[in-house]
Amino acid sequence: MLPELLQGVDTGGLLVIQDSASYSGRHLLQSFINAALNREEAVHVLGFEVSEEELKDGLRGSPVQRLHFHNAYTDPLGWTDHPAFTVHQFCLGELTRLVKQTSHSKPATLVIDSLSWILRHVSTPDVCRTLQQLRKGGAVRSIIGLLHADMHQRGTVGSVCHSATSVITVEPAMRGDEAVAKITKRSKSGKVIQDEEIFRIKDDLTVVVQSKSSKGAKKADSEEQETDPTANLTFNLRLSDTEREAKQKLALPFVFSKEKKTALLHSGPGSGRIHYEPDANDDYDQEDPDDDLDV
C-alpha cells in the first residue's frame, strides 16, 4: 500500500501523514517529496517547521530544481518587518498565487510542513475549508501534509483526517530504524482500505516495506502450525509388529490376572498355619461384664 501511495496521490487528493513525538514523520514526508521530484513533478513546499537548507540537506541526491520552497519558517507570525509568508496568509487566494508564481505545464504537488503549525494559529474549520478549496481549485494536483497528532485535541485531528483521502499514521517499530505505518485510503468509489505495514527508509529516501505488520505476522503463524510437528523427533512414535507382540505379552504389575489370584489364595505346602485353642479368658459374656468378679 505504501509504495502505491508513493507512486502518486490521486488528482485532488489530500494525504495526511500523522506522527507523534516518539517518531517523526518528516522522513517519510521527504520520501514523498523525493518520489514526486523523481517523477518530474513540480513540488511546492510550504515550510513552517524546517528551513530551506535543512530540507534540501535532507533531500540530497534528489533533483531539487523542480522544488519550490516557500519560507514560512523564519517569520510565520510577522514579528519582523519583511515576512515571506505568515500563517494568516494560509487561504486559497494566497496559496494559489504562490503556486502560480512558477509556471509549469502540470499542476504541482503542495507539501505542507506542518499542518500542526497552522492549526495552532488558524481555526480548524478554516484550515479544513482551505484544504478543501485547494483540492477542488485546480491549482494544485494533490496536497501532502504533516500533522503532529499528539499536539492537538482528538476532534481537531479527526476533522483534518476526515477531509483527507489518505491518512498514514507512523509509529516506531520494535527495531531501531524501522517504523509502522497504519494506512487508511479512501478511494473515489467510497471504498475504504486499511492496511498496516512495517517500513524502513533508506539513505536515498526510498521506502522499503519489510513486511505486512500484525495481520501478515498472524498469517505466517498459522502457516507454521500446518507443518508436521512429528517431523524431526528423537524418538519413535510407531511400533513394528514384533514390538507390538512383545508389548502385548508383557504383564503389567498392577493388572490382577487369574494366575496371580490363585497363587495368592491357595497357599502352597509348608506355609504357616494358625492353631487356636480357646481358654477361660475367651469365655467372655457381653451381657455381664462383671461375671468374673467374686461378689
Binding site: 517547521e49 528551513s51 519558517y73 523564519t74 517569520d75 510565520p76 507570525l77 514579528w79 495552532r120 494559529h121
Partner: peptide
C-alpha cells in the same frame, strides 16, 4: 503553551538556522 512554542520557534529560526 502556544505562545511559548512560537517563542522557541523564532529562537530556533534565528539562532540555529540563521
Amino acid at each position: 503553551a502556544g505562545a511559548v512554542l512560537d517563542f522557541s520557534h523564532y529562537c530556533r529560526a534565528i539562532v540555529c538556522s540563521q
